[in-house]
Every structure is written in C-alpha cells, then in structure tokens.
Amino acid sequence: MYLPFDVVQDSRGGAAIKIDDGVTIYTAEELTAMVLGYALHLAEFHSKVPIKDAVIAVPPYFGQAERKGMLQAAQLAGINVLSLMNEHSGAALQYGIDKDFSNGSRHVIFY
C-alpha cells in the first residue's frame, strides 16, 4: 500500500516487483544484476580495460540463500565471481595492503 510498486510472487515462489505497466516483473536477482552491471560499466569506464572477473563483498549476515542469489545476479550481469568475501574481511585486507607496519604494533577495530 505504501510502496510505489507491487510486490508479487515470482515463478520460483520468491518475492518480485511488478512495475507500472502491470506486465513486467523483476526478481531481486534481476534488480541486483542491474546494479552490478552498472557498477561493472563504471569500473570499465574508469579503468579503461574490460573487466570479467570480480570478488564481491557481501554483508557478514548473508546466509547461503543470499550468497547464491548474489552469484546468480553476477552471472546475469556477465561477471565471473572468483569469490564472495565478507565486507569486514575486505576492509581488513585493504587496511593491511595500504598501511606501513614498520612503526610497531597497534590495535585496530573493524566495524
């Protein structure tokens, strides 16, 4: 009632969105694939090289169903997923790559 679109059941029994024309239905995977496709386009535009492989960061609370949906969305977007990584692990990895540890030990919290 409060949404500008209708939430309906898709052919697999999951939730989908019916847009204004009343005919077109998008699943969550299709909508995520559109976002990933746009991100892929931006990455290729700025790097000036074609990108086919990716590591995708997902929230740590994603279960197997959500991870499988993310892999399906990436496949729809034409992206070969090398791995799904928890966001916290990605942040820690990037921190480790960027920092110089020659100054001694320190305590770091990733939230």
Rank of each mutant, 00 (worst) to 15 (best):
L3S: 05
P4H: 12
V7F: 01
V7G: 05
V7W: 02
D10R: 11
D10P: 05
S11Y: 01
G13V: 04
G14F: 11
G14R: 07
G14M: 04
A16L: 03
I17M: 10
I17G: 02
K18P: 00
I19N: 10
D20V: 03
D20Y: 11
E29A: 04
E30D: 06
L31N: 13
T32S: 04
T32L: 07
M34A: 11
M34L: 12
M34H: 10
M34S: 11
V35S: 03
Y38C: 03
L40Q: 04
L40K: 12
H41G: 06
L42I: 03
L42N: 09
L42K: 05
A43I: 09
A43S: 14
E44T: 02
E44D: 06
H46T: 03
S47M: 11
S47L: 12
S47V: 04
K52W: 01
D53R: 07
D53A: 03
A57Q: 07
A57L: 09
A57K: 04
A57H: 12
A57N: 09
Q64H: 10
E66L: 06
K68D: 08
K68R: 15
M70Y: 03
Q72N: 15
A73L: 01
A73D: 09
A74Y: 08
A74K: 02
Q75R: 10
Q75E: 11
L76P: 00
L76S: 05
V81I: 07
S83V: 01
Y95H: 14
G96R: 11
G96H: 12
G96C: 13
D98S: 07
K99N: 11
F101C: 09
S102A: 13
S102E: 06
S102Q: 14
S105G: 12
I109A: 15
I109V: 12
F110I: 13
